[in-house]
Design a protein around this nucleic acid. Structure first.
Length: 235
DNA sequence: GACCAGGCACATC
DNA sequence: GATGTGCATGGT
């Protein structure tokens, strides 16, 4: 089992095969997910903030209201009184926190990049990640969502589903840290934006339909892998 | 009506 | 550094 990013274990090749096998099963089951659903990079960033600890179905309602009000742009969103923005995103929960976070991101985008997501995407990945993480309300997952989907940077997104699926399959410890789990994927997958996007989409779908807190293992497409066992599993 | 959902910041030890 | 808590709506 791989537990950290400091010790390069000797089973990396085995690990690569196992991770590839797991994703192959998901691709075979679901087909292309086309994740992330959005009409623009800006909308992806907004969705990344709105989906924090929230079911996507609730985020969809909030995004639909923002679009209906024609404020899916940094300036238009910033021009909204915070109470109005709160009302639009209310279905996504935590609406007071998230309204503040959305306004803060819009302010940053306008100040640093004239409101242009494409200009933001030209920033080197590590530098941009640090800048995003410095914004109050943007943590590792939200930052990586924005980097991978809105900016096209080759970074693997880790979320609750990722940790749950891979720990239940014995490939990582259940309490693995975000950075260590992300590094696990960076070591076991070829760095490729399109693949990283699709793999995350497959994880979201698996988590949504099967690998929930109360799992449905018996009907999960990954169940055959559990039955045959993973070579990475300790004896 | 209880439980759960793709985080994050902050307080406390 | 680890752990606990508040934030809030909507689906099952």
């Amino acid at each position: 089992m791989i537990t950290d990013n400091t010790e390069q274990t000797t089973d990396t090749e085995t690990g690569r095969r196992q991770v590839a096998r797991l994703f192959a099963h998901l691709e075979n089951h679901f087909g292309p997910t086309g994740w992330w659903p959005a009409d623009s990079p800006f909308e992806m960033a907004i969705g990344a903030i709105l989906t924090q600890n929230t079911a996507w179905t609730n985020v969809e309602k909030a995004i639909a209201q923002l679009k209906a009000a024609d404020c899916m742009s940094p300036q238009a969103m910033l021009d909204l009184p915070v109470e109005t923005l709160e009302a639009y995103i209310r279905p996504s929960g935590f609406f007071r926190q998230k309204a503040t976070r959305l306004h803060r991101f819009c302010r940053f985008l306008l100040d640093a990049y004239a409101g242009d997501m494409a200009e933001m995407a030209e920033t080197p990945m590590e530098e941009l990640r640090e800048t995003l993480l410095a914004l109050n309300g943007i943590g590792p997952e939200t930052a990586d969502d924005i980097l991978l989907y809105a900016c096209g940077k080759p970074v693997f997104v880790v979320d609750t589903y990722t940790r749950r699926i891979f720990s239940r399959h014995g490939l990582v410890p259940a309490d693995i840290k975000y950075a260590d789990l992300q590094n696990f994927f960076h070591r076991h997958l070829e760095s490729d934006v399109a693949r990283f996007r699709e793999f995350h989409g497959l994880i979201v779908w698996t988590g949504k339909y099967f690998c929930r807190k109360t799992p449905k293992c018996e009907v999960c497409p990954l169940h055959p892998l559990l039955e045959t066992g993973h070579p990475l599993l300790p004896d």
